[in-house]
């Protein structure tokens, strides 16, 4: 990807399942990934709950998005970040998070990268645009 590619960040800030925001934010990720953009995904605030392992929406009668999350890397969405403070505040450890696909070369699962709020701030400043949902 060229260095001058348009830098777009998509943030996920709301808890999953109780509303459609996370589901439709993931649909935005897949579409934006099909354009020539430098895409970053950030889960923060209650949005970090979307990444917690072991979710099952069957009893809710909702399709859910765990399969979509696990396929992000297949769609070349590799810059997936999570706010460490949001995890700490909710008593979630990085080990409890799902993978967002596999590393193409090693086959190892790719996990969201935990960033400090300061690192997140720097990343946000580098963006051309931030799509919040």
């Amino acid at each position: 990807m060229a260095n001058d590619a348009f830098k777009l960040m998509i943030t996920v800030r709301k808890a999953p399942h109780g509303s459609i925001y996370v589901q439709e934010a993931i649909e935005v990720m897949f579409i934006m990934a099909s354009f020539d953009m430098d895409l970053s995904i950030v889960f923060l605030d209650d949005g970090v709950y979307a990444l917690k392992q072991g979710q099952n929406t069957k009893e809710l009668g909702i399709k859910g998005f765990s399969a979509s999350l696990a396929a992000l890397a297949d769609w070349d969405v590799k810059n997936v970040y999570v706010d460490g403070d949001s995890l700490t505040q909710r008593n979630i450890t990085p080990e409890q998070l799902v993978s967002v696909g596999e590393d193409e070369e090693t086959g190892q699962p790719l996990h969201p990268r935990v960033l400090t709020t300061d690192e997140l701030r720097v990343l946000m400043h580098q963006q051309d645009s931030i799509l919040s949902s």
Binding site: F6, L8, E27, V28, I31, M32, S34, F35, M37, S129, I130, L131, S132, S133
Partner: peptide, 20 residues
């Protein structure tokens, strides 16, 4: 239209302002 239109609008703009 599709979300591609949103991508195109954002690229043409100086600012994206979200109301949610």
């Amino acid at each position: 239209s599709g979300l591609g239109q949103l991508a195109s609008m954002i690229r043409k703009s100086d600012r994206l302002v979200t109301f949610g």
